[in-house]
């Protein structure tokens, strides 16, 4: 016992005498748990080798909108890695914690990796679900979270809408009709992506789950490839989950340099490799080539091209009285 104490004492002295320990808080959204658990270790090693300091990154996960709210309400995030730019915009406009042009500070719209929305279906595909058209057929149960409360669900909604536009010569009315039929087939609107995964995979509700591509692969791993399959539709949305330093916090914490490096390292070969490994589509060509077999090729459309950016999409589709509200009116 005494020797143990001595060792502990010596160890703690050694730590305090040696390198600094830096703490970072990364506030992220739901399906990035596994990605950042792995990335944080890799970054800690890299930072130790570069500067000799220890860096411990804590993670916080939840629905993207709720996480942004927590930061607005004072959660001291050094960096935010959220599901959509709209949520980081909100931190910028509501709390003025970062400049309005934050998205220009890092390459590729500050999104080091991309993702998309795919279908998770039950093994053997009993409902013959191949593309978006099959989701609006009578009797098909579609599980998806509420776009008002979930970032992933907003991407899913926009993916379906973009598909309908493409197949109806960009006719808005036809696309609305399609979306209305689609959401008529939704038995449960959970508040977040993980909730919907549980509803579909564990509670066995519905025939298809509209999921983040990485979440679908994780579900396959978690719940068994003998129970589920992934179907990639012909067209989907290019989802860009962005990252940013929260200037106000890093200034106070004195962590500006390490927080910036933390996000920049996501673009390095190692960071990109970890993203690919965790089923996010890497930007880097080398990593993209390495993991190409995991990601089926499909037509990916951007929100800026089809919907004129987040602010506009938000106002037209998800705000009160918007298209999403209208499709539920009798």
């Amino acid at each position: 016992m005494k020797t143990l104490l001595k060792i502990l004492l010596a160890a703690s002295l050694a730590v305090s005498a040696g390198a600094k320990e830096i703490k970072l808080l990364n506030v992220s959204y739901d399906p990035t748990r596994e990605l950042y658990a792995e990335y944080n270790n890799a970054f800690a090693k890299y930072w130790k080798a570069r500067t000799g300091d220890d860096v411990v990154v804590s993670q916080s996960h939840g629905g993207s909108g709720k996480q942004a709210q927590s930061v607005i309400n004072g959660l001291e995030a050094d960096v935010v890695t959220l599901a959509l730019a709209y949520d980081i915009d909100a931190i910028s406009t509501q709390a003025r914690s970062l400049p309005a042009d934050w998205q220009k500070r890092l390459p590729n719209n500050s999104t080091p990796y991309t993702s998309t929305i795919v279908f998770l279906i039950r093994k053997g595909n009993p409902r013959q679900i191949k593309d978006w058209d099959d989701l609006v057929k009578k009797g098909v149960g579609v599980v998806v979270p509420n776009p008002k409360t979930s970032g992933g669900a907003r991407w899913a909604y926009l993916a379906a809408y973009a598909y309908a536009l493409e197949h109806n010569n960009n006719d808005d009315a036809a696309a609305r009709g399609f979306i209305q039929k689609l959401y008529k087939n939704v038995p449960v609107l959970d508040s977040g992506a993980r909730g919907s995964t549980v509803t579909f995979a564990q509670r066995q509700i519905g025939d298809v789950l509209l999921a983040w591509e990485n979440e679908a692969h994780l579900a396959l791993k978690e719940f068994g490839a003998d129970n589920f399959e992934i179907v990639t539709p012909s067209l989907s949305i290019l989802a860009e989950p962005p990252v940013s330093v929260v200037d106000k916090t890093v200034r106070r914490h004195g962590t500006a340099e390490v927080a910036k490096a933390y996000l920049e390292y996501l673009y390095s070969d190692e960071g990109q490799d970890i993203a690919g490994k965790n089923f996010y589509r890497p930007r880097n060509e080398k990593a993209a080539a390495k993991y190409a077999s995991r990601f089926a090729s499909l037509k990916l459309v951007g929100i800026d091209q089809v919907f004129g950016g987040w602010a506009k999409a938000q106002k037209t589709h998800f705000a009160d009285g918007g298209v999403f509200d209208q499709i539920f009116q009798p």
């Binding site: 909100a90 008002k148 009160d320």
Partner: peptide, 14 residues
């Protein structure tokens, strides 16, 4: 749930 939805869209007033 409606209240949560408004919060998630940063509409605190609503």
């Amino acid at each position: 749930v409606i209240i949560m939805g408004e919060l998630d869209m940063f509409d605190y007033g609503k």
